[in-house]
Design a binder for these strands. Structure first.
Lengths: 142, 142
DNA sequence: CTTGACCTTCCCATGATGGGAAGGCCCATG
DNA sequence: CATGGGCCTTCCCATCATGGGAAGGTCAAG
């Protein structure tokens, strides 16, 4: 199987397959006479594994660990679970951060007339004059 | 004010102040005889504005737009609100993506013994043999 | 006058991905 | 057999926001 065929079979772009090789995640089974990379079913399976991990937000570093655990038939499932739990915690921390941003922004946007007038509590807050903790919108001049 | 003093006053690193200058977000008021950048209160205010925007997750591109609107006293608040709303939508999309990841991972982790045995539904899912839609955990051999 | 704490510019690195150039290989069609 | 198109190869560059560090200039305190 060429790199193009492996790409189609796995859903991973040829560019990325070469990159994963560079950082030692996967290697082609062999090179053909004309120096083309040759892949088999195992490699394609590995690529799909990587793709699924990436879609779950694992970094390539975590991916490397999980890939090693996957190939180690003697692994302890606790090791895998630990990687997963730590990743979950990381995701939840980022979600909480972004949710806080959304909350603040929604409050500001709610208080902003969004019309043709220049008064804008969003800008006031960004400029540090705002009072983001205030539940109510400041009265606007008419 | 030197770049170091402006950095302390604004909370933005000197490195970043220079970078913001390079991409034309802010400029020092002047250069001193010895070619040092000189900042005034206005510039520090601008830096704090940028910092607050970044902390709310705006990209530097959005930051540039909001900064221009901030400085434009004739702006229409609707323009600002639109940037904010679009950013909120973006954040919410990313939160939803990550929440879906967390949900899947939690299910998998819940089903994983996390012990010394090698059986691991997390790896099975990653390998594409799993059944992530299944609400229940598969029975494990004892 | 030395020392240390600043400042300047310039280059490099991150993480994951894509774009593109230059050159080689192979197959099908004229 | 020749040519063209579609692969493949390697190599370099760009992204986004940030930091690290080198090499060299400047300034103030001891």
């Amino acid at each position: 199987m060429n790199i193009g065929e492996a790409s189609k079979a796995s859903g991973v772009s040829a560019k990325m397959i070469r990159y994963y090789e560079e950082i030692r995640l996967i290697r082609p089974k062999a090179r053909s006479d004309n120096n083309y990379r040759i892949y088999g079913e195992d490699e394609v399976h590995g690529l799909r594994f990587i793709k699924r991990e990436r879609s779950l937000g694992f970094s390539l570093e975590e991916t490397e660990r999980l890939l090693a655990l996957w190939q180690d038939k003697e692994r302890e499932s606790g090791a895998v679970k630990q990687v997963a739990l730590s990743h979950i915690a990381d995701l939840e921390r980022r979600i909480a951060e972004m949710s806080a941003m959304v909350k603040t922004l929604k409050h500001l946007a709610h208080c902003c007339g969004g019309d043709k007038r220049p008064d804008c509590p969003i800008l006031e807050d960004l400029a540090g004059q705002g009072d983001a903790a205030d539940e109510d919108c400041k009265p606007r001049r008419r």
